[in-house]
Design a protein around this nucleic acid. Structure first.
Lengths: 230, 230
DNA sequence: TTTGGCCGATTGTTCAACAATCCGACGATT
DNA sequence: AATCGTCGGATTGTTGAACAATCGGCCAAA
């Protein structure tokens, strides 16, 4: 048995189950539900999550909620204060910089290494997805398209572990992006950046693509730091 | 509250508690115990971990063991097969390559960015630690010194998240390193590599240091792949 | 050899209970 | 008025027991 065989059974293993069909456990579904509410901004940073309340709400046992909390805590989406409860994680200025550091390391390395034509095409697809969302004036879709874009860049590396790391980082960012996206057209400015980066990638100008991406990330971090008082 | 405040309360948050003093929960201690046995090779890959057995062994409740399992599963040290049990993770050839991909991305980026004199000194310290272990003919200490070396390289980036990612990757590697280290003097060959890399780092020849590190990782991966039937 | 069904064992989940801990309020003291 | 104990309610941490669901293996039948 290798972990490759088993990933199908875990909740956040991105790839679909190949052979074995497994129904996600109740705890996994609770975690998924909370993850969703976290991403959608229903639960804002700092909010306290009471075990019994959630257990009642979702009609499950307190112990099951507890297991779900363990999952979310491992993903840093939630923070456990012993004997005090779990809270929706809130990122301070240091955390913002830290998240961007991780992104710089992983995304830039990934794009510099290039990738198979299929993976490059996925990046292009994400760019077009963003265009379509912009044309439809769908701010929400624009945001997810942007995340798809950066996810596709990491996917160039074809590494399951890097993919999950990236998706966790993006999940963390969704936590505090809500404040930034209050002013509409937030992602608009990034559309052209993505296009240019993608074009360089397709042209095989990997160093240039990496440079553009790095500049993009630096700018993005600056903007985020500005929005969140630092 | 920021996550920086709260990390003190989690078990695998590396940095020590700064303000609040917290006693690790029972589940955390169980997880720590299992982590230890995993690292020491007491529990070998593929081994099945029965909930009730461990609960009895450690004198805790089954539910508590379950929570500990959730922690370890999040770290990929253990794999959950629904309705079948949890097993010590075993890495297949694909996983080995994947782990090294992560290391190449993170370690090489970290060393290329350099670091503060203090952090560089820590790298040097790890090299000396390895020397001392070699002089004492302590193979075990040599292994941990090597891990300290690579941990110190990542620490150059001063990123809490990268540090935990790296420590998790190293924990994963310990899982299957046991087979490789059966032939003694396994780490010996790496001593000079580490010295050379460290020297280049200290001299500010970051590109050269990065190149050396990359070559080292490629060689190491090849060796590991050879040992584990690929 | 393959199919089918039964059985024991283990997991998934719930429930109820209790100790430990924390938070806030209420008073008492200075 | 401000500080300091103390008390009480609420929530978490942990346990133990229970039960259904599922799995693996065994054995019999075709």
């Amino acid at each position: 048995m290798t972990t490759s065989d088993a990933v199908a059974s875990t909740a956040h293993g991105a790839s679909a189950a190949r052979l074995r069909v497994t129904v996600p456990s109740v705890a996994d579904r609770v975690a998924a539900e909370l993850r969703l509410q976290l991403a959608e901004g229903v639960l804002l940073p700092g909010t306290r999550l009471t075990e019994s309340a959630i257990a009642d709400d979702l009609g499950v046992s307190r112990n099951t909620v507890r297991e779900a909390f363990a999952e979310l805590a491992a993903e840093r989406l939630v923070v456990r204060l012993p004997n005090r409860g779990v809270f929706v994680a809130s990122l301070g200025p240091g955390d913002i910089h830290d998240v961007y550091t991780v992104r710089r390391f992983i995304e830039v390395s990934a794009i510099r290494a290039g990738g198979s034509p299929g993976r490059v095409a996925a990046v292009r697809a994400a760019v077009e997805e963003g265009r379509a969302a912009a044309a439809a004036d769908d701010e929400e879709a624009l945001g997810t398209a942007n995340q798809h874009f950066h996810g596709a860049i990491v996917a160039l590396a074809e590494s399951r572990r890097l993919d999950t790391i990236m998706s966790q980082v993006l999940a963390e960012m969704r936590l505090f992006f809500h404040k930034a996206t209050l002013d509409a057209h937030f992602y608009r400015g990034y559309l052209d950046d993505n296009e240019e980066i993608c074009a360089a990638l397709e042209a095989g100008e990997l160093d240039r693509a990496a440079g553009l991406l790095l500049a993009y990330l630096d700018r993005s971090e600056e903007k985020q730091s500005a929005v969140h008082g630092d």
